[in-house]
Design a binder for these strands. Structure first.
Lengths: 242, 242
DNA sequence: GTCCGTCAAGAGCGCTGCTCTCTTTTTTGA
DNA sequence: TCAAAAAAGAGAGCAGCGCTCTTGACGGAC
């Protein structure tokens, strides 16, 4: 089993090559990806691809999984690069990393954050990857709250039913005791108000990136990067990051 | 010319009927709309449709134009229904109208705010309709600014290049002198800070609606309407609406 | 050295958007 | 009023699509 028989290796390589070509086609032709075109470019006949992916949907799923992973990697890497205690810097770094990844991989971004394919249902293994960005943002807020540096401006308070949803999310948050080396007490978690303001930053992040990727800022904003930076700073203000 | 010859009338009716059937197919099958299926349902042969729409793209364009118009109508109607001086109420009414329209027409919403079709370029006559929602929101902010009731919280200031973009947008804003019956002086326009905060509400609105329509809140937020309302209130806070 | 699993190829099915030609029906102009 | 013109629909056909099934050929294990 430790010996990855030659056959298995060349198979894995060709599988990657198929995905690579498919990714390139995706970038030019959009979501209407043609299996036959991919096969042609690889010098294969279309039916041969079915040895590697059971269907077109399965190939797309593989690309979606890879995209979530790449975006999650980029976000977490950006968070890790910034100074731990520079909370606002970490927040902005993650936001800019998401935007940069989207700008460099617009088709893959559209695949995961654009209109979903009607009949398509995301496999279970994608949901974990899909949450990595919001968990990264949440982790920054949590670090801020723990060190008592989350000082949000006075804003409207969420109504009780929303508070219940938010409380559930706070309880569901993966125990981050290992991050700070401290036991997670009740005063270590976010309040509902803090989470609500943080989630505003989450939807703002992807809303604005989608606007830019999908061309909705076309004749509205020219200074895209600076505008994005300013908007993310506004959301950091709202979240209460110093 | 005043007599709309019987033939022209039945043609207009059939054109509408084609769009209606196409809209229904869009709702179930998503963006992969089949001309042949639409023709079949109408008892026509596929080539007959080409008497009414030169191509599948042209049919989709007609649906897009209709969608922008319907969404713009809904937003403006909601704005008009609320009391003029209830600025926050108008803001929230417009936001909820956009959300409700999207919930009732998810496929059409995806058509105009989802991932764009790669080769597709929007015709010029859509851009005006596409701006109606943001102009409605801007009008509310402008009304607030004119009556001196825009009191935003202290937040980061936009850097000079962004200020230039914002100033251009303010200058481009259609002269709204007829709305208040007053001449538009310089003190009647929005400041760059005010516009930047208002635009945050704009991208937040569509970001959050897209999240909901595209299923990204699926196991995150259960109280969708109340959560949306709270988030829009947060953005009204940020914009400075009393 | 044989045998079995894997691989690529080819043919083919039903579907798609779109074009072209032909016939029928309706409108129009002298 | 009647023929010419315009418009509408039907049908055949082209190239492309995803996908299935069958047929040979090759390579590693016994």
């Amino acid at each position: 089993m430790t010996a990855p028989s030659i056959r298995a290796r060349v198979r894995a390589e060709l599988t990657e090559e198929i995905k690579s070509v498919a990714r390139r086609h995706l970038a030019t032709d959009g979501a209407n990806l043609s299996l036959r075109a991919v096969a042609r470019e690889l010098g294969l006949v279309s039916s041969a691809l079915y040895r590697y992916f059971a269907s077109r949907d399965e190939l797309l799923t593989a690309l979606i999984v890879d995209a979530y992973r790449a975006l999650g990697d980029a976000a977490e890497a950006a968070d890790a690069t910034a100074t731990d205690t520079d909370l606002r810097g970490r927040w902005l770094a993650v936001c800019h990393a998401v935007r940069q990844w989207a700008l460099h991989h617009p088709a893959e971004y559209a695949l995961i954050y654009g209109s979903p394919v009607p009949g398509y249902v995301a496999p279970a293994d994608t949901t974990a990857s899909a949450q990595r960005v919001v968990l990264t943002l949440g982790g920054i807020l949590l670090d801020a709250a723990r060190t008592g540096r989350l000082t949000p401006p006075p804003t409207s308070a969420p109504p009780p039913p929303v508070r219940a949803d938010l409380a559930r999310l706070i309880a569901q948050y993966p125990d981050a005791a290992d991050q700070g080396g401290r036991a997670a007490g009740s005063h270590d978690a976010l309040t509902e108000e803090q989470l609500a303001r943080g989630l505003a930053g989450w939807s703002q992040l992807f809303g604005l990136v989608s606007f830019e990727i999908f061309g909705r800022l076309e004749q509205v904003v020219d200074q895209r990067e600076l505008y994005f930076d300013h908007q993310m700073r506004l959301m950091a203000d709202l979240a209460g990051l110093p």
